[in-house]
Amino acid sequence: MTNIVIDNIRKSFGPFQALKDVSLTINDGEFVSLLGPSGCGKTTLLRIIAGLETATSGDISIGGRSVIGLPPKDRGLAMVFQNYAVFPHMTVYENVAFGLRMQKADEARVRKQVEKAAGLLHIEPYLDRYPNKLSGGQRQRVAVARALAVEPGVLLMDEPLSNLDALLRLEMRTELKTVLQSAGTTTIYVTHDQTEAMGLSDRIAVVHDGRIEQVGTPVEIYNHPATRFVGGFIGNPPMNFITMPVLAGQVAIGSESFSVPTSSGDIVLGLRGETVERAPSGQGLEMQVRVAEPMGSHLLLTGSILDQPARVILPATETVRNGETVGLTLDAKRVTWLSPEDGVSYPAAA
């Protein structure tokens, strides 16, 4: 059982608080992404879990045992770095074997494990080569194989795909998912790329400004962001936020009214661009379209709703001219309502 319990981790660099009481529980065999913009503290948290950095306060236990104060090698984990950190002076074989050699594994076990990991990552043809002869994608495979060869309880990955070009990233993402699923290792994956996090993770922890804003499955986080930050950070285009007046617990949109979780004042409508449909003319939520961009698979509209910037997606079969006003029908089950004061969302309607 290699679950990870992160309990009130705090980290300060001088007066700067990089992590503010972060708590997170990761189950055995689970793949959890730490997702957030650069500088949010996600890499610092990963490095604290790895033991490369020490927390100012708080506790971390791996497999039920507190690892605070233990050196990295005694934590039963392996790590894949953003710039691969594949040793240039060793062959691919020796790179993959490195962890096992450090554990003083016998030659037969080294060979068996290296071959197994190399097979999983399809790097057998390069075992005798030096990393400088390999492409970025191949080097990253070597780095992952090196980590898997020691059969770690926990695998830590720090932006492993961000140095690869877009096409390779997509290919490696799919492959990582297959490989890690078969390995069954508890994995913490740091990324700023929401599509990577969405595609790979069992659960995502969205990190912002040294705090975890929300933890949930990709679908939960996408459909019901806990905060305005999460909604705006995840999704392309990001979630639209339209502030509207509330009258007697209702918001009037076109000819319809929606009941909302507050009785008066203002409320923020969190609207995913692709959850709308085009309403018959003269009905629905009015959007002034500034630019209509046919993307082939869909039609992207940029403009404003109630004088607030908005971006929505309609099916490719629709035609909208620049400057036209279109009516949009909302799906009450797929909208999020947020407080205008603190940007926190109201619980989803049951």
């Binding site: 490369l52 990295p72 090698k73 984990l77 790590m79 770095f81 953003q82 950190a85 450090m102």
Partner: peptide, 27 residues
Amino acid sequence: VPKEFKEAAEIFGASPWTRFTRITLPL
């Protein structure tokens, strides 16, 4: 020598002396 090389070696269990002789010196 990028610090990631030494950190990777540390994660995989290399002692400070091993990191020096097996990673730093060759690099």
